[in-house]
Amino acid sequence: MDSKELSPTQLATLSDTLVDMRKVILKMIAEAKSGHPGGSLSAIDIIATLFLHRMKYTPEHYASLSEDVFVLSKGHGVPALYVVLQKVGLISDSLDLMSLRKLGSPLQGHPDRVRLPEVVASTGSLGQGLSMAVGIALAKKLNNDPHHVFVLSGDGELQEGQVWEALMFASKLKLTNLTVYIDRNQGQIDGPTETVMPLEPLDKKFEAFGWETHTIDGHNLEAIHKTAHLTSTQGPLCIIADTVKGHSVSFMEHKIKWHGVAPNDEELEQALNEIESKRNRERSV
């Protein structure tokens, strides 16, 4: 069982792994010549920390949903999920990540559980992942299964009314085995969330819907790790993770343009160098 704090060694290793993961994500999207770099880079720290340092699962049983479960509601961030699933052995090393978005590949542009059961739920039509996760958490309660269900939701998709229906339901049923992370990167296709359709005060809205809510820096691995271990006896948990769209690549950070555009060869090279230099900088500190 993981302790509730990352050791300095664990933290250093995780940071190092995340440098590699960010690079692979961008290579995959560049190879596919399409995809969503901004939201993949804002989400990767959360997904990796959950799978590497919080969730309990086995490659044999994960897809049966009888263990800890992760649902990616913001399906467009799926390159980040594929990278993590392969890193932790939930998908085979022989599956070529560079087949992303190619004909016949299990690595569809958005999660497809029929082609790749380890993604748990097919998502990509925003606002639906939380309801499905609520159903899975409910089944676990009925089965007296003590495992936990995690959801990563985008912030833009909170504009879908269905999300608030699911928030009411999970609160009514006191689903203490459910934690939703909000990838609060502030951006969506048509602009900043607060311009397109304001979400704030987001924490107060979740609290008003009966969710215990915490706000963290979504790129602070210790904060992600700590909140991932929180449990409540009252009901479900919401972690609003303030993140940066395109995190670690200067020309992508905070830029809406990089929501759904693949880098060209030059941009990829520059991005990989920047990410790698961050590793070197972290090491020298």
């Binding site: 049966s64 499905m132 409910l138 089944a139």
Partner: peptide, 28 residues
């Protein structure tokens, strides 16, 4: 009553929850 879930006037969420229950082995 333990296997019956009143979802309120929110059919989209009800359908999503039913999908999650089904994926986790129930027959909703």
């Amino acid at each position: 009553p333990d296997r019956f879930f009143e979802c309120g006037i929110a059919e989209g969420n009800m359908i999503g929850i039913a999908a999650g229950l089904a994926l986790a082995g129930k027959r909703p």
